[in-house]
Write a protein that binds this DNA or RNA. Sequence first.
DNA 1: GGCCAGGTGTAAA
DNA 2: TTTACACATGGC
Length: 233
Amino acid sequence: MRIILGIYSKLCRKYGSLNWWPTTLENELHPKYHGKKLNDRQRFEIVVGAILTQNTAWKNVEKAIFNLNREKLIDAKKLAKINVKRLAQLIRPAGYYNQKAERLKIVADFFVNNPDILKTKSIPGLRQKLLPIKGIGPETADSIILYAAEKPIFVIDAYTKRIFSRLGFCKENVSYEELQQLFMKNLRHDTKLFNNYHAVLVEHAKNNCRKKPLCNDCLLRRECRSFKKLFCK
DNA sequence: GGCCAGGTGTAAA
DNA sequence: TTTACACATGGC
């Protein structure tokens, strides 16, 4: 279905390359890393951010990550050792801070014991290692694989579900894996494509269609109609 | 003041 | 297998 790529083209034309995942501190690389390789600290910051952003606005996550950077705590060994209550206070702005502090320590401990985890060749293999960790569900696992390990897997989030169910490509309660397959089967497996597709979907959803079933002024309204013509008659 | 935010784990039906 | 609920701050 070329329409899946067509939707990306439109969103990309409007929002451009957003160069996710935003990372901090490495000034020369912030906010974009222009093709340069991520360093290990940045990769781990992405892992931390993926936990912290669960059901939370990124603005609040930035404050928490700022605090962690200030204390030089974007470091698996340090996070694995830190007092959980102190960690909770540092990440407080990101919400659910008690829960996330506990889970961050679990994930940090895992990274201490599996330092080369992100170098795992097989994507399904990496996913299977990440998913059993408490605090890492499908979206967080896929975000880590796509943005920290830079391997091509499509991240599904609430926005993606909302946009594509409203366009008529899936039901509102579609499963994570099912919607993921829609993208994986209809796009070339390319890290940069998957990266920016997810990013522009989030950007688009933030700006549009919060409540209306489908905005008449949404730039994807044509795609909605054409899909219905093709598949819903 | 209410709703929402780049979800997940757990327990009960 | 599905559904309900706890977790919590901050922006609008």
